[in-house]
């Protein structure tokens, strides 16, 4: 069942994760702003990439806006979250790179590897704990406006699991999270077989200017609270939910000189670069994350059906009989006395 409505929560606050820099320099800047909840209908508004400079510039700036999320653009184009659709969106719709100002080779020197990824806790409310290491080559970042970079982490949640935007809001208020947005099914209460998948997009500000040396690494730890929806019925009593890898991007503002003929020679532009941070690992270092969600057992249906209604009728019958044969205490006393 496809819902035609999505919701998202955008938040800005203090940084949400325990972030440690292996080089030893703290590099996350904290920002604090408001919180808003919005809901919007999906539409077929296309985001297109054009070779024309102005066109490219506008699309690129679109993603540089602090209020704009990659998943919001996705949700405007696609009705529901599907892995092939998302891949197509990243490959064809996202304006990756820096257009025609800067060499596009920056993405070659951005790498990440997932050091650790696990589900913490038991039951229906758990935390998805991820520890991710980023590698930067600073030589290629000389033209970036170093204090205006942010790493974007997108968790495409599997079916049957959701993140509660209102809980994330509370964590934000407590300074646990930074910018975060949740996209997906509006109904938090519906079971997984009636729900669409959702995704969480987390933005983390990173100041590259304080990094030094030839190669630097940053390790971030993300703890995302997640909840299980009611699972489809099964024979075994448990529904397996498998988590995929997170998607990582870096977005930076750059000061560059346009070399395009259509633009004024020598004029500097504040431009936006969006890069996908590719996975460094040739092979996954951690096992598949599996969440076994208890599910209703089909074989119970008959017994439950019969005994639910039998108990309801027996119970109502007892109350009805008690009421009908109720005699007032005083009345019975009086009759005895007489």
């Amino acid at each position: 069942m496809a819902y035609s409505v999505t919701w998202y929560v955008e938040t800005q606050g203090k940084i949400h994760m325990c972030i440690s820099l292996l080089v030893g320099i703290p590099l996350i800047f904290f920002s604090s702003n408001g919180f808003c909840i919005d809901s919007s209908s999906f539409s077929s508004k296309d985001v297109t990439s054009d070779s024309d400079f102005d066109s490219y510039s506008s699309v690129s700036s679109f993603y540089c806006s602090s209020n704009k999320y990659i998943m919001k653009s996705y949700s405007e184009k696609y009705e529901s979250l599907q892995d092939p659709d998302f891949q197509e969106f990243v490959d064809q719709e996202l304006p990756l790179g820096c257009g025609k100002f800067l060499p596009d080779n920056l993405n070659l020197v951005l790498r990440h590897s997932v050091l650790h990824r696990s589900l913490v806790g038991e039951g229906s409310h758990r935390h998805l704990s991820s520890s991710i290491r980023f590698s930067f080559n600073l030589e290629s970042t000389s033209e970036l406006r170093p204090h205006e970079c942010d790493v974007i982490l997108i968790e495409r949640l599997p079916s049957g699991v959701y993140a509660d935007p209102f809980e994330l809001q509370h964590l934000l208020q407590r300074g646990v999270f930074s910018d975060i947005a949740v996209f997906g099914d509006a109904n938090l209460e519906s079971p997984s077989f009636l729900s669409n998948r959702s995704a969480v997009e987390i933005n983390m500000d990173i100041d590259l200017s304080i990094l030094s040396g030839h190669k630097n690494e940053v390790v971030i730890k993300v703890e995302l609270p997640l909840h299980a929806r009611y699972a489809p019925l099964s024979e075994s009593g448990y529904w397996d939910v498998k988590f995929g890898e997170p998607d990582l991007f870096m977005r930076c503002s750059v000061e560059g000189k346009a070399h395009n003929q259509n633009s004024v020679e020598g004029k500097s532009h504040n431009q936006c670069c969006l890069y996908m941070i590719k996975n460094d690992d040739d092979q996954v270092q951690h096992g598949t994350i599996l969440w076994k969600i208890p599910s209703g057992i089909k074989a119970h249906a008959g017994v439950v059906y019969v005994f639910t209604f039998v108990s309801a009728f027996l119970s109502s019958l007892l109350i009805v009989l008690t009421s009908i044969f109720y005699t007032n205490i005083n009345g019975s006393k009086n009759s005895k006395q007489s």
Partner: peptide
């Protein structure tokens, strides 16, 4: 909810027990 055990059947029976307790309460009160 918090241990992730499949105890749907037991929980449903506990609901029936709770209905029985409510019924006992109502009958006694009446």
């Amino acid at each position: 909810e918090f241990k992730g055990k499949n105890v749907f059947l037991q929980l449903w029976m506990a609901s029936i027990l709770f209905l029985a307790a409510n019924t006992y309460l109502m009958i006694s009160v009446i």
